[in-house]
Amino acid sequence: MEPDNHLVVKNVVKHYPIRKGLFSKIVGNVHAVDGVSFQIDRGKTFGLVGESGCGKSTLARLLMSLEPLSGGQILYKGQDISRFSKKHIFEIRRKMQLIFQDPYSSLNPRKSIGHSIEAPLVTHGIAANRKERRELVTQMMDEVGLDVEQFKRYPHEFSGGQRQRVCIARAMILEPEFVLCDEPVSALDVSIQAQVINLLCNLQKKRNVTYFFISHDLNVVKHISDVVAVMYLGRIVELAPKNVLYKRPLHPYSQALISSAPEVNLKQKKKRTVLTGDVPSPIDPPKGCHFCTRCRYVEKKCTNEPSPELIEVEHNHFVRCWLY
């Protein structure tokens, strides 16, 4: 294995059983994540786009070992963390941190923000004493652009953007190598979004962290990522370096997704492919290609045969479609 691969995800599957009746008989499965594989290099940003219900948040929970896998492997620096014991997970969490989407619910309303940022240091026994810890916290607060004076303030006294800075500080204070950002700017106003994105970029440059960046906002993902994956109904349908993907999307779903994004541009109205219909239920996904119910190019093969694999059609450009 190349030493560069920071995180390798191999064919990860997560099914949630649906139970019914008196004896909780399993009547079906929600195929939340259905065979996802990719790898992320150290210090790079891997962007994941997809619409609601496509399984991106479930994938995030799996990567953070918040839930057990139904199948597959997650290799962090070559170690399979999905088989880790509790003790090992505790240790790995120093290196892997998460930034939540909602800065309102992810901070304990009854804890001052300083204490929230300090908490990880306490649990992991970093810094010898209180004074040292405080010093680290103030440094961190300064780094994310919070006023050190605000140490004792409570979350309700802050705006969404400032709260997200607190969350970033809390995630970064352990000096993690891998940070998973689950829609970190979706709940923020546009002008504040830009501040937070810039902050994340700066932190990455300074600390050489790897980001796994989830968003439904194509613009944001494009701005921050090096490699982008498009997810649809539990599967990655296309994966490529961002410039390639945005310039020449190959999968019909990626094409539709990219052309759907509203653009600030009045001079030339772009031609768009508007998808019809809705995403099928992950309880009962289409048999063949998951996208076949909405695809313009659908053929017999798509619905009858099992879905195609993610294949490399050109250097580093992977697509899951019979067209290629």
């Binding site: 002008s191 979004q193 830009a194």
Partner: peptide, 19 residues
């Protein structure tokens, strides 16, 4: 301050401060 699809990436100029 909104990053755009069609445009090359550059540092986005965030509006400083809060409303």
């Amino acid at each position: 301050c909104v990053p755009r699809l069609g445009k090359p990436d550059k540092v986005i100029h965030a509006i400083k401060g809060l409303a």
